[in-house]
Amino acid sequence: MRDVVTSALVLAACLALPVARAADDSRTPAVEGVLAAVESLRAQAVTAGHEWLGTRSLLDEARAAAASGDAARALELAEQARRDCELALEQARREEEAWQGRVLR
């Protein structure tokens, strides 16, 4: 369910993006939506126990960039955070089973 909501948010955000670019207004729902969606991915990584170091600060920087009106920078940082979160979640899914192959015996 959360995934569905996330996707809807992101889709909405992305549809609105061209408008955001044209207006160059970082406080539009587009940037906010992307940041919120990445934050939700990060929350998933935390829940899985697999959050990577640095994701929090990337998102903090992204928020700061958005607040200062630099939407492009905010989205660039959010994209980096998103990729790290996706990789962390991929790792978490793989490890659900993979760890058992490493048990010392």
Partner: peptide, 22 residues
């Protein structure tokens, strides 16, 4: 706890057991 020890994590993709076991 056991699962934690054997789970690879982080950007370097390493588990406790990688360095301190194998």
């Amino acid at each position: 706890g056991k699962r934690f020890y054997y789970t690879k994590r982080g950007r370097l993709d390493m588990a406790c057991v990688d360095c301190h076991g194998r």
